[in-house]
Nucleic acid binder design. Structure first.
Lengths: 192, 192
DNA sequence: CCCATTTCTTAAGACACCTTAAGATTAAAA
DNA sequence: TTTTAATCTTAAGGTGTCTTAAGAAATGGG
């Protein structure tokens, strides 16, 4: 199944599209092939695209003043990944978006997407729901990190994202959980 | 200035409304007068209203399994406060919304708002921008709590929300920052 | 104005998590 | 395969933040 088919079947889970609409959609997204570690978006740039992962895995991470990386979001095939902050407000991104594995991403420019909204109204609804879900996921994450210990967070991560845990290096999971790789290693030993 | 005037001038900062539209708006929001500590939304209920603070101050907080409260958001006059998660997805709220001081809130039911979108299209734009800003604020908060010490977080809070710091009890600020009141007290002593 | 309640502070000991440094594994490149 | 780089683990000692308990200060109700 090629990348655009993957996108279409992803869209079909939420909205109905006519064959004509589907072909318009296919024509407007641009397919990008990324090498491992290739960066799609740099902090400081404005994020002008919505990005769908057709294959592979990516991460969005923030770099603090001490150059330490903090992973905000993982993404695997079938997910969207972005610095939504930057995309929505057209201000410089605070996050990098980078491929973890070799990946295929379908992306669409904000201007193109706004035009697409008029041609294919269901797409607007699709993205409105996406933005809502993104908010929900972020809120869950915020509340979670406020009220749970590292061990609880790790156990939840493992049961919720088993497929991710098996594919990304452990030090990245530690970064996502907000702990050091050494401490995660100690936790794993203790749990087992 | 009465509560609805405060709402109108708040709306005027972002969108243009004709006098007729303004009077429609005034007729659709319902004014509520809250006592100190009165709860507007309970966790477990579905949040069916968007809520604008015309006077006073409120907090949205999450209660964990050990019955500890974690403040997710403060709001003062001119702000909106809600469990957006619940409002947007029509699922049970994870947060309580409660008045800190005696307050006046203007609220509108989801169904009424959806009708209002059709009568006054600028309102839809207003809320779309609100939701975006809410996301941005939440993302800032998440990144912040991931990469900064409690002391840094407190100093930032103080410079960003001086007006709030002077009005709400310190133990609530501690809760917002994710630390204990005792530790905040120690921090303050150290800083001064 | 006084009593009750709420809020803030102090201090000692405990624990979660970090830092550093080094070695052990595993994966990638040559 | 051999070498190099990336990733994971171990361990000792340190720091940030919490817990508990108690008292002090401020605030609000009668």
């Amino acid at each position: 199944m090629d990348a655009k088919e993957i996108l279409l079947s992803h869209l079909r889970e939420t909205i109905d599209l006519t064959p004509e609409e589907e072909s318009i959609v296919c024509d407007t997204y641009i397919e990008m092939h990324l090498k491992k570690k290739e960066v799609l978006l740099f902090a400081g740039e404005i994020s002008n695209h919505m990005r769908f992962i057709a294959a592979g895995s990516l991460r969005a991470y923030h770099m603090d003043e001490e150059a330490k990386e903090h992973i905000v979001q993982f993404g695997i095939e079938g997910w969207w990944v972005n610095d939504l902050y930057s995309y929505l407000t057209e201000t410089p991104a605070k996050q990098f978006v980078q491929a973890i594995e070799p990946s295929i991403v379908l992306q669409i420019h904000r201007d193109t997407l706004n035009q697409l909204y008029e041609k294919v109204p269901a797409i607007e609804r699709f993205y409105r729901l996406k933005f809502e879900k993104a908010y929900v996921a972020l809120q869950d994450r915020t509340i979670n990190s406020m009220s749970k210990s590292a061990e609880e967070r790790y156990l939840e991560f493992r049961s919720k994202y088993r497929s991710i845990e098996q594919r990304v290096p452990q030090y990245m999971i530690a970064s996502y959980l907000g702990i050091t790789p050494e401490f995660l290693s100690a936790l794993r030993k203790k749990i087992k």
